[in-house]
């Protein structure tokens, strides 16, 4: 626990760096938000100047930075010009959607990748091994939005199995009382199984198209570390006393091989959170990434900065969770 706290503290400087860096980056980017938010393309010079003054853009950049930092210190991420709401509120509404999607995708990816990797490792050089390699290569080669569109084409347009890809839930289903923000869990808590099924149906296609992209690194690392594990002395020991095949492969080899997979899964999760903007766009998923992209395109500073700060914090948090998981899985780590 002490170590976890120290880890969090030591990541504060990095977070601060991220803050300042994105702030400066946004100021360097071309585009004047005041022009963008003025009443129309033919707004007068005075009007723009007025908006600029309202937004505090007439002050020098260091001054703006100080204001910004003190706001953040008070828990105020600013107000979005697009939605007119505080950024914090926007993010809080949209984050669960992104998290639910990413978690599900990661889960699907792990469930698919670990057995694939194990199968490939058990018969290296066989047809299975090459099949897994081909599948992984395809998953990486096809961009997520293409695979997303393909999935929509097949399962929605051709087969009609999936609902129309428009957000988290169709308009006719009444929403459950919000508890976790994860629709699939909220429906379950409310005991509304029909709604839960509807939410899951909406979730499955975007999650699969995201998972396809990250199965490759997970399966490859599982295969590699499983090969090392299977060739190790302790697996030979396990075989020498005649342990059952299952016990040798699962308890001895896989449990050791899973350690590096945990690390990679943490990295994959972090990248997925930021990179799922394409999937969110394709499936009209109301997540934080598409929100940030819209804000960026309209030079809306506050949401972008808030988004980056959120991502950085999540990244720190995910790394901490990975470390803790690693400590639980590997007794050698927790001792040090």
């Amino acid at each position: 626990m002490m170590r976890a706290g120290r880890r969090l503290l030591s990541s504060l400087p990095a977070l601060f760096g991220v803050l300042v860096f994105t702030f400066l980056l946004m100021r360097v980017l071309p585009g004047d938000p005041a022009v963008f938010f003025a009443s129309g393309p033919n707004a007068g010079k005075e009007e723009i100047e007025l908006i600029r003054k309202q937004m505090g853009l007439n002050k020098s950049v260091p001054e703006q930075l100080v204001y910004y930092l003190s706001d953040i210190g008070h828990g105020n991420l600013g107000r979005s010009m697009m939605t007119g709401q505080p950024v914090l509120k926007d993010l809080r509404e949209r984050l669960p959607a992104s998290l639910e999607l990413t978690f599900t995708a990661l889960l699907i990816a792990l469930i698919a990748a670990v057995p694939l990797g194990v199968m490939a490792a058990l018969r290296p050089g066989s047809v299975v091994d090459h099949g897994v390699r081909l599948f992984c290569a395809l998953g990486v080669c096809v961009p997520t939005f293409v695979s997303g569109l393909l999935l929509i084409y097949v399962f929605y347009y051709l087969l009609g199995l999936a609902p129309d890809p428009t957000g988290r839930i169709d308009v006719f289903t009444s929403l459950p009382p919000q508890r976790t923000g994860f629709l699939s869990i909220d429906f379950l808590l409310a005991g509304d199984f029909e709604g839960w099924w509807a939410a899951c149906k909406q979730l499955i296609l975007p999650a699969v198209s995201m998972a396809l992209f990250v199965i490759a690194p997970l399966a490859r690392i599982t295969r590699a570390s499983m090969l090392v594990s299977l060739g190790s002395d302790f697996v030979r020991t396990a075989r020498s006393v005649g342990l059952s095949w299952r016990k040798v492969v699962v308890t001895y080899a896989l449990r050791n091989a899973i350690l590096p997979v945990i690390t990679i899964a943490g990295i994959v999760f972090s990248t997925m959170l930021g990179a799922n903007v394409l999937v969110e766009k394709v499936f009209s998923w109301p997540g934080v990434a598409s929100y940030a992209l819209d804000a960026l395109l309209s030079s809306d500073y506050a949401p972008v900065q808030g988004f980056v700060l959120l991502m950085a914090s999540l990244f720190v948090l995910v790394n901490l969770v990975v470390d803790i998981c690693y400590g639980i899985a590997d007794p050698r780590v927790s001792i040090e």
């Binding site: 190790s232 302790f234 020991t237 308890t251 001895y252 449990r255 050791n256 007794p331 050698r332």
Partner: peptide, 8 residues
Amino acid sequence: RAALNPIR
């Protein structure tokens, strides 16, 4: 040492 499972 290598002949024993390190995490069991």
